[in-house]
């Protein structure tokens, strides 16, 4: 199984725990400890979908470039969108499924 999906599953379990645990201690020492634990735990997952998927190339259509480059705001938004897609493990998976469909 794809490592990223394994991480996503584990992170889902962590999120559920964080959500269910809504009774917080107001004792500074315990509070600090709980937060530190949560933070350390969360840190393990903050790299999910942070790196571009190797070999995945996302290209704007030639016909769209004129509009996209018409102003800075659009260019910037487009850049962020493309970068997001390059890191999107679900899109990667879709491509792998597509490969099987094309067989």
């Amino acid at each position: 199984m794809n490592e990223t999906f394994q991480m996503i599953s584990k992170n889902a379990a962590r999120l559920k725990e964080v959500r269910d645990d809504s009774d917080v201690s107001l004792k500074l020492e315990d509070f600090q400890e709980e937060r530190m634990e949560e933070k350390t735990e969360a840190k393990k997952y903050d790299k999910i979908m942070e790196n571009a998927i190797e070999g995945l190339v996302v290209k704007n259509l030639e016909v769209d470039l004129k509009t996209i480059n018409a102003d800075e705001g659009k260019t910037e938004r487009n850049k962020k969108w493309i970068e997001g897609l390059e890191k999107d493990v679900y899109v990667q998976e879709a491509l792998l499924i597509m490969k099987d469909m094309m067989k």
Binding site: E54, G55, L56, V57, V58, K59, N60, L61, D64, W81, I82, L85, V91, Q92, L95, L96, M98, K99, M102
Partner: peptide, 17 residues
């Protein structure tokens, strides 16, 4: 909006998204 996707190391190219 749309783009095309290439993932050549897996042998897929020019997929519309």
């Amino acid at each position: 909006k749309s783009v095309t996707l290439d993932y050549e190391k897996e042998g897929v190219k020019n997929i519309g998204y």
